[in-house]
Design a protein around this nucleic acid. Structure first.
Length: 423
DNA sequence: TCTGGGGTCCTAGGACCC
DNA sequence: TCTGGGGTCCTAGGACCC
């Protein structure tokens, strides 16, 4: 039986979330900035029309924004993840199999739904999501994930499509692929687009019909060939269903103001470790290694320094205090005085399920006391806001390194409102 | 003045083993 | 001085995604 994939993608997701609580901003140019109010990460179509690009640094287009009365927000991730949960919950009612691909995208398995009238069904999904959550979405349908992506791309751009495009008919695939530039394909980035162009492959149809598979595999690896086959309507990427745990957990931030002192770096890194360990405990895992890095600003004409090192641990842990201890050893070793530090980060890796963690002969695994302390901390922070309870190394005030978020919207969705995830 | 953050997957190459 | 071949595991780095 032919498989059928749908890709549901929220339109200008972060902006749509902000507009929900500011109906006066509907149909206006609105943008959301990255952390530290750095660059644009979400734009309404009205803002795109003003020529503001994705990833554009805010300071470069501030003039244009002020001139056209653009409403600009700092990012408010707790709002976005909360809204994302609601969207995904609604989608889960329409399919037995849902893959949450990112905060604003999901793949649905609609195989065997033909009898319902697929396009009608997709329109019903779209209408229901918008009714339940207020978030507008576009939907692409196809026999493979890659073709569903292409369909979605067209659904977003075309006025005629009214938000839904179905690419199950091979004749429509021909037309759609001929109109799709190779760099707009899912999985084709800058480097591989350049390679394809050098073979005189300009659009997705030319790629799909290219004869030399061996050459594609050689210059573009196995994945390149899989993409090509997906364009030929052979499914190569399946839905990823299991709520899979992260294999590495990062936390890094650019500082609001540059940092010179070791003590300030220690505080910042301790905070990043805390947040990473919280995520680690949430997925009931432990890690065996922590990596720390620090850097100066590559955009600034000052002496540059970048250092990174991993510290392995003798036993798996998710105890914030233990990981901080290891991280501080690395940090102290890497730190050089006299540099203007602009960013630091940590990465937890070698992550395994807590139950599978082997006992070590040389180091004590997390004991019951550690577990209950961490549990208590997580509970309080979930209830009263993150950072209510922390370990002392995180510091308490005077955070020169804290993020600038001057344009943040209020806390619209408050308290402990996490929706149960039972997709 | 002001340029984000968090992930995954693949491959090549080295270390090691028999 | 001569010095195979195949397998596995790990890591660094590249590319890509949203």
């Amino acid at each position: 039986m032919q498989k059928i994939f749908a890709l549901v993608d929220c339109n200008a997701f972060f902006c749509s979330c902000e507009q929900l609580f500011r109906p006066d901003l509907r149909h206006k140019p609105v943008g959301v900035l990255s952390n530290n109010d750095g660059c644009f990460v979400s734009r309404t179509k009205e803002l795109k029309a003003l020529g503001v690009k994705m990833g554009e640094p805010y300071f470069k287009v501030k003039d244009i924004c002020e001139k056209h009365g653009v409403h600009v927000f700092s990012s408010n991730f707790s709002l976005y993840t909360n809204m994302s949960d609601r969207v995904m919950l609604t989608l889960s009612e329409f399919t037995p199999e849902l893959e949450v691909y990112s905060v604003d995208e999901a793949f649905l398995n609609l195989t065997g739904f033909e009898t319902w009238g697929l396009e009608e069904y997709a329109r019903k999904i779209k209408a229901t999501v918008e009714k339940n959550t207020g978030i507008p979405v576009s939907i692409g349908l196809g026999p493979t994930k890659t073709l569903a992506k292409v369909a979605n791309h067209i659904a977003k751009k075309s006025d005629k499509a009214k938000g839904v495009v179905c690419l199950l008919d091979p004749r429509l695939q021909d037309i759609a692929l001929a109109k799709t530039e190779v760099e707009d394909l899912w999985g084709v980035g800058r480097a591989n687009a350049r390679k394809l162009r050098s073979l005189n492959i300009r659009n997705a149809k030319e790629f799909r019909d290219y004869k030399n598979d061996k050459l594609i595999k050689k210059i573009f690896t196995k994945v390149g060939l899989q993409i090509k086959e997906e364009l030929q309507a052979y499914p190569r990427f399946e839905l990823k269903l299991e709520n899979s745990n992260k294999k590495q957990i990062n936390c890094s931030r650019t500082f609001g103001t540059p940092v010179f002192e070791l003590q300030a770096l220690r505080e910042a890194v301790a905070n990043y470790v805390s947040s990473a360990c919280e995520k680690l405990r949430k997925q009931k895992s432990v890690c065996f290694a922590v990596e720390v890095y620090m850097r100066t600003s590559p955009f600034k004409n000052v002496p540059q320094y970048y250092a990174i090192e991993e510290q392995k641990m003798l036993s798996g842990t998710s105890d914030t205090r233990k990981v901080i201890k290891y991280a501080m050893e690395v940090l102290d070793k890497l730190y050089r005085a006299g540099y203007e530090y602009k960013k630091a980060g940590v990465r937890l890796s070698h992550i395994i399920d807590r139950n599978q963690a082997q006992m070590s002969l040389f180091d004590l695994p997390d004991d019951v006391k550690s577990d209950s302390l961490m549990k208590c901390m997580d509970r309080v922070n979930a209830r009263d806001g993150s950072g209510t309870l922390k370990v002392a190394a995180c510091g308490v005030n005077n955070k020169a390194w804290a993020m600038n978020r001057n344009l943040k919207s209020p806390r619209y969705v408050t308290g402990w409102t996490e929706l149960r995830k039972v997709y």
